[in-house]
Design a protein around this nucleic acid. Structure first.
Lengths: 145, 145
DNA sequence: AGTACGAATTAGAATAATTCTAAGAAGCCA
DNA sequence: TGGCTTCTTAGAATTATTCTAATTCGTACT
């Protein structure tokens, strides 16, 4: 009963890779799901500490790496600076607001991915595509969050 | 007569931003154009030193930053690790070969950019898009370079 | 229940990439 | 030439991440 609602899915995915569902991994995954911005490892560390004060930063890095390996979380790098983590697994692009520094997920219709893939000359076999927009989001959008 | 063929364009662009065309900036820009892979600042530093042994790493960082500001060079970050620099100004995507670590430029027909922009909900105003593929390039492609 | 063994966590040291600082050199123009 | 600003430089500082080696945990056997 102390399990978070995501614990089962997490346990399953980890088991698929021969890994254990530890309390640290659960709490790291939970904080990512709770606030779906795109936190850095440090920010995750700060949030996790309030629930589990004894956790170490190294463990947060380890857990995030593990979650990325299991395809439960995406690591995102669009500018120089710390890696950010994103628990949204559906195909989506990112919109980076240059004024506020905030990052939004933009859902992608499957058709667009196919279209984008047509630009690849023969000989290039892509397993994934990443699309990142930069620009300005209106105040309306900013408040929605 | 000691000018590189790109010196004029460089001087012009810098002047537009109220900046000077220094020997350091010229040589940094030149090495980027000479070998159109996607070098890190350290790699640029190594190449530049053979032409200008007294240049410092800090200056290479400064010059690269300046060139990016003037839109003569693009800074690229697709994975955790050092920023890479790319003198290709035409709209293009990147293909990152996961086996070799090599990065290829993929030319983009203008139409595709418009199509991609249609995925943005209202309220998002993009000034640029970045598209990055990950996957495998065939041996044929690898040799072409 | 006890123990053996691999997996996971931890603190702190180490490394890598980048930025900062303060001093000096170079270019420009009155 | 003198004075102002821009640029470069070396080295220190900072930031993000990874590594190391020592513990702890979990599971599975007895």
């Amino acid at each position: 009963m102390s399990h978070s609602p995501n614990a089962e899915a997490l346990t399953q995915r980890l088991a698929d890779s021969g890994l254990r569902a530890t309390p640290q991994r659960e709490v790291v995954y939970d904080v990512l799901l709770q606030k779906r911005d795109h936190p850095t490892a440090d920010e995750v560390f700060a949030r996790v500490k309030s629930e589990m004060p004894t956790i170490s930063l190294a463990t947060v890095y380890n857990c995030l790496e593990t979650l990325v390996q299991c395809d439960l979380v995406r690591a995102v790098n669009f500018e120089r600076g710390p890696t950010r983590y994103c628990p949204n697994l559906r195909p989506h692009a990112h919109f980076h607001d240059e004024k506020t520094g905030r990052t939004y997920d933009i859902e992608l219709p499957p058709a667009i991915l196919q279209t984008v893939n047509t630009v690849l000359p023969s000989g290039f076999d892509a397993s994934s595509v990443e699309i990142t927009f930069r620009g300005q989001a209106s105040a309306k959008v900013a408040n929605r969050e």
